[in-house]
Design a binder for these strands. Structure first.
Lengths: 270, 270
DNA sequence: CAGTGGTCTAGACCACTGC
DNA sequence: CAGTGGTCTAGACCACTGA
């Protein structure tokens, strides 16, 4: 009938964390120490810590310890084109983040040709198993992992363009596509939340139980889907935002401490 | 160096589920049985099942067993007003769901006056701790839990309207506000993913590690924020969708089996 | 009542970190 | 090397379900 012990322990730890008993560096006592303090077995302590981990409050690293997690939230503005300055010679992601005084970085850029899995084929309206061009990049802000992104282009769109090269396109892929007659006129976003894969958890430096948000953006010209971009963000430090209709949106979305608005505009897709 | 046993077990179970070895009813073998089959301890089996639970594949109920979860996905269209027929005398949620041949239900409608917590006060641009009218409702589709919704109204907006009553407003709260001079001209949506609270997991019938998506919709007139609606959905069976810009969106979003588009239009807020 | 999952313990060995 | 978290076992008692 009473609350299970591991939940009680988790609640006590949550309170101690909220009270600021520990801060950024090596923080929490070790599991054996907590077991002694809480008069519980180590397994029970581990259950409690697992709860806090899934909430994004702490992070454990083998051989090192369990640490209080820094929780800076970033707001991704998905209905604005702020920061998208075609022809300015700068990558849209870099430009948007730099503008907010943050330090952007991109890593592991890849260009591959793969066969379209079902969820890609359906959205691009091509045959399952057909070739698609995939351009991928991992992004960081202030040296902390931020997002994993893959963009899929139908061969009919990519052929004969610089999308077929493993080079960055300095004025953006939207501009490159438009030079070849594929003018983006709109997009559809689909958002899901799920637990991360092993690889995602590793890159985003989150526990396996911390949710990620996955954004599917299908971009269209007047004739056809021209690109699908799939972006995965750590859920506990990302807010996706849309402004629709009115112009009166000043001061909105400032409900959390430490939030920083990062415009991840559509044209940042690789 | 090799994959941990509990992950191997989880992978084997995942494969057996994908192969259709079990279906809907009481499905998985009991934990002791699996422990024998897999030549592992019961705790290891439980770790494996916890992974599947967080992925939304299975669901355990004390005293009964572990079951294969049915995974119908619903798409929530957030940028259309489909189904919003002002003055037709039907609730917008009921109308939208019925239109798709599904069975909608609403439960536990509450109207309360509370003091505004920080995240509400900031979005409604009122003082923290000021009175707000809160209208809440839990929703189900086909008798399965679907969403938890709370709408917050500044007193200045609600006063003198039927929002102050615990009755449903048959033609919708947008219509009621507009009759009193508060014309909605736009809104801002903010989306986060997180693990559910105890109460949310209980109502949505998901494990404590299955992510939920939380949608903050702040509605504006030309003068001020007039409503904040917070909706919580089970992440593994919900897709939030926005159509922006172009008109060419036919056939999009059909990448998953069993998806059903449910328009949860803005005017469905209570 | 027997069988299920939920909680909890005590102890073990391992892999990894940093000194 | 000692200390950390990661994995795994064997067993216990409990709460809840359904026949």
């Amino acid at each position: 009938m009473p609350e299970p012990l591991y939940r009680q322990v988790a609640a006590r730890l949550r309170r101690r964390i909220a009270a600021g008993e520990w801060e950024a560096g090596k923080q929490l006592p070790s599991e054996p120490t907590l077991a002694y303090q809480e008069n519980a077995s180590r397994n029970t302590i581990r259950l409690a810590i697992a709860l806090l981990t899934n909430e994004g409050l702490v992070e454990s690293r083998q051989g090192r310890g369990t640490y209080i997690r820094e929780r800076a939230s970033f707001v991704v503005e998905l209905s604005r084109e702020e920061g998208a300055l075609p022809g300015d010679g700068k990558d849209a992601f870099i430009a948007a983040v730099t503008k907010h005084g943050r330090d952007p970085a991109q890593r592991d850029f890849r260009m591959e040709i793969r066969t379209a899995p079902p969820e890609v084929a359906a959205r691009l309206q091509i045959d399952e198993g057909a070739d698609v061009v995939v351009r991928s990049v991992n992004r960081l802000i202030d040296k902390r992992p931020w997002s994993l992104q893959e963009s899929f282009y139908p061969m009919a769109v990519a052929i004969g363009t610089r999308l077929m090269s493993a080079q960055n396109i300095s004025d953006g892929t939207i501009a490159e596509m438009s030079r070849h007659g594929h003018i983006q006129t709109g997009y559809r976003d689909e958002i899901v939340a799920r637990v991360p894969t092993h690889a995602e958890a590793a890159f985003l430096e989150i526990g396996g139980g911390v949710p990620v948000v996955e954004l599917f953006r299908t971009a269209y010209s007047n004739e056809r889907p021209i690109r699908l971009t799939i972006t995965v963000y750590a859920g506990d430090s990302t807010v996706l935002a849309y402004d629709l209709g009115g112009l009166w949106a000043h001061g909105a979305g400032e409900g959390r401490n430490g939030d920083v608005a990062i415009s991840d505009s559509d044209s940042a897709a690789q």
